[in-house]
């Protein structure tokens, strides 16, 4: 996982760099929770550009992080969602709760923060 924190905007960007399944999700979850609790960001963004596979374990993992950031008064977005990931997210109705955004503050993701 690649972690980037922007102090000015209190923005935590977590780029997941592996396939998300039951096996990997616990490790991802532990690391994400550690970073969220370390920074208590206003905005959490999960970047899926490097995720070419996700099954329903990802749904639980994403909703769990959403609950945590909401508890801390922050909000959450998702970016660079690949087609496979999007199909799973839409099936679970997650995209209605957590928005998929195209860019952060007018800057394309990947070039900023």
């Amino acid at each position: 996982m690649k972690v980037t924190y922007n102090e000015k905007d209190k923005l935590l960007l977590l780029q997941i760099t592996e396939e998300i399944d039951h096996h990997s999700s616990e490790k991802i979850r532990t690391r994400a929770d550690f970073e969220i609790q370390k920074y208590i960001p206003k905005k959490l963004i999960i970047d899926f550009s490097k995720v070419n596979f996700m099954d329903s374990a990802g749904i639980g993992m994403i909703l769990g992080r959403y609950k945590m950031i909401t508890m801390f008064g922050g909000t959450m977005d998702m970016v660079n969602v690949t087609p496979n990931v999007k199909k799973v997210l839409e099936m679970a109705g997650i995209t209605k709760i957590i928005p998929i955004i195209e860019e952060i503050g007018g800057t394309k993701i990947g070039k900023c923060v």
Partner: peptide
């Protein structure tokens, strides 16, 4: 408690 979403069979059925 394992953050399972309960979507496994729904996904299999739809995919």
């Amino acid at each position: 408690e394992l953050e399972r979403s309960g979507m496994g069979f729904t996904i299999m059925e739809n995919f």
